[in-house]
Each structure stands twice: as structure tokens, then as C-alpha cells.
Amino acid sequence: MIEIVSSARCVACDLCIKVCPTDVFERGADGIPVIARQDDCQTCFMCEVYCPTDALYVAPLGDPAPPDSPHTDEDALVQRGELGAYRAAVGWGRGRAPGASLDKNYLFTQDAPAREQR
């Protein structure tokens, strides 16, 4: 679930509010989005993909992270470069090749040497 909106990085563009398919965010008084409905988060990473400043962190958990969890420690996560990781994987952002152009699914599906398909 979404755990962190980094106010140090956020530029208050509100794109995450717009693109979140389950409407988890609300605009805060200072323009920085707040996580208003964490229970509605479906951990789809779409906000991470769209965030232009890598200000968001979505934990890989289906439930809210406990308070002492490494998934709520913004400084440590920033240091390890974990904010915006999915945006990098998808290949969005300046200077990146779109991940779609590197897509290797064809190696693993019906036409490929590997068999079992999803």
C-alpha cells in the first residue's frame, strides 16, 4: 500500500490525485497530497509510475505497514533509492528507454521455449 508522500520531493502537481484509480489521495492544505484513504489502495504502483519527482513510495504489502516497518522509514528508503523504483522499471522519465521497448514477454509465452503460461 501507499506509505509515503515525500514533502521534500513533492512539487504539488497533484498528478497522483488525478491518476489514482481508487482515489486514495486528497489535496492537503499546503497543496501536498495526503493519503486520505489508505484502505482503498490496491498497491497497483500507478501513482509511483506517474509521479514526476519520485516522491511516492508504495510498499509491497496488501495491508498498512506497521509503524516500525522499514517501509515507513522515508530517509532509509530515499538513501537506498527505493522511491520511484517502479517508474524506473517502466522506463518513464527523462533519459530512459521505455520499458515496453525492452519487453521480453515473448520469450516466456506460448511461442517461446518455456511452456507454462499465465
Binding site: M46, V49, V90, W92, P98, G99, A100, S101, L102, D103, K104, N105, Y106, T109, D111
Partner: peptide
């Protein structure tokens, strides 16, 4: 302009990446 990957000089069009698509 969807950036399908190339393999052996052929575009592979049997998969689409969600956000890009």
C-alpha cells in the same frame, strides 16, 4: 508509435506493457 520490442529484426507484438499501453 507504441514501442514494441524488436527481436531478430522483427517487432514482437504479442505483449503490451500496462502503463505505456
Amino acid at each position: 508509435g507504441y514501442p514494441f520490442p524488436h527481436h531478430d529484426g522483427v517487432q514482437r507484438r504479442s505483449s503490451v506493457q500496462g502503463p505505456e499501453y
